[in-house]
Computed example of a mutant assay.
Amino acid sequence: MKIGYYAIFNYDDYDINEEKYGIAIEFPDIPECISCARSEEESFLMAKEVLEFITSQMKVYELPKMSDLSEITLKDNEKAFYITYNTEDIDQSEFTFYDV
């Protein structure tokens, strides 16, 4: 099954000239799905990884409906990217799940 949601990359703490690197990553539809990275390239990897981890713990009926891009309001220094993965490509042995 293909899973996909929009991620918001916030560049407030990113300045290549001052060697300040920090891109905050969040998914508006999944509040607990957050991460950060030092570069845009790393941001895509981290966004996919956190999306895979959080949604792999959810049942299909628990997955929230994806917002339309037109419903997402971006602030200055933010960009939206569509992040996807195929559940069949996930090696679940890499994750440790705990019942809470």
Rank of each mutant, 00 (worst) to 15 (best):
D13K: 14
T84G: 10
I23F: 00
G22L: 04
F97A: 07
D99H: 15
E19N: 14
Y21R: 13
A47H: 02
D76A: 11
E94Q: 05
D13A: 14
I3L: 05
Y98T: 08
E40G: 00
E26V: 00
I54N: 03
F97E: 04
N86G: 13
K20M: 04
Y6C: 06
P64I: 00
D15F: 10
N10C: 05
D68N: 14
I90E: 05
F97M: 00
N17D: 15
Y21N: 08
N86K: 11
I25G: 01
T55S: 14
I16D: 15
L74D: 08
V100K: 10
M1P: 03
T55Q: 12
E41K: 03
E42C: 01
V50S: 08
E26Y: 12
V50R: 10
D89P: 01
G4R: 14
Y85L: 09
K59P: 05
A80W: 15
I30W: 01
F9K: 04
I72E: 10
P31W: 13
I8M: 08
F9I: 04
N86F: 14
A37K: 02
S70E: 06
I54F: 11
D99F: 15
T55P: 12
F44N: 00
K2N: 11
E62Y: 07
E88C: 07
L63R: 09
K59C: 07
S70P: 02
D89E: 00
S43K: 01
M58N: 06
T87Q: 08
E41N: 02
F53M: 12
V100M: 03
L63N: 09
F81S: 03
I72H: 11
Y98R: 02
P28E: 08
S43Q: 05
I83N: 03
S56N: 15
A7S: 12
E26F: 08
K48M: 03
E78P: 02
E42S: 10
E71F: 14
A37E: 00
L63K: 06
Q57E: 13
T87A: 13
F9C: 04
A80Q: 09
Y5G: 00
D99C: 11
D29H: 04
N10E: 05
P31R: 09
I8N: 08
D76P: 07
E94C: 05
K48Y: 04
N10H: 02
D91F: 13
I90M: 13
I34N: 03
I90S: 14
K65Y: 13
F97H: 07
F44S: 04
P28L: 09
E26S: 05
A80C: 12
Q57M: 13
Y5A: 02
M66C: 07
Y61Q: 09
S39H: 02
E42D: 07
E52T: 00
D68L: 12
D15T: 03
E52P: 03
D68G: 10
S93I: 06
E52I: 11
S70Y: 14
K65S: 12
M1N: 06
K75Q: 10
D13L: 12
T73M: 11
Y14T: 09
K48A: 06
S35R: 01
T55L: 12
N77M: 14
C33N: 10
E88Q: 11
T87Y: 15
I83Y: 04
S43N: 05
V50L: 06
F97G: 05
I8Y: 13
E88K: 11
S56E: 15
I30V: 00
T55E: 13
Y14W: 15
F44D: 08
L69S: 08
I8D: 09
D12R: 04
Y14H: 15
L63S: 07
L74S: 10
V50W: 07
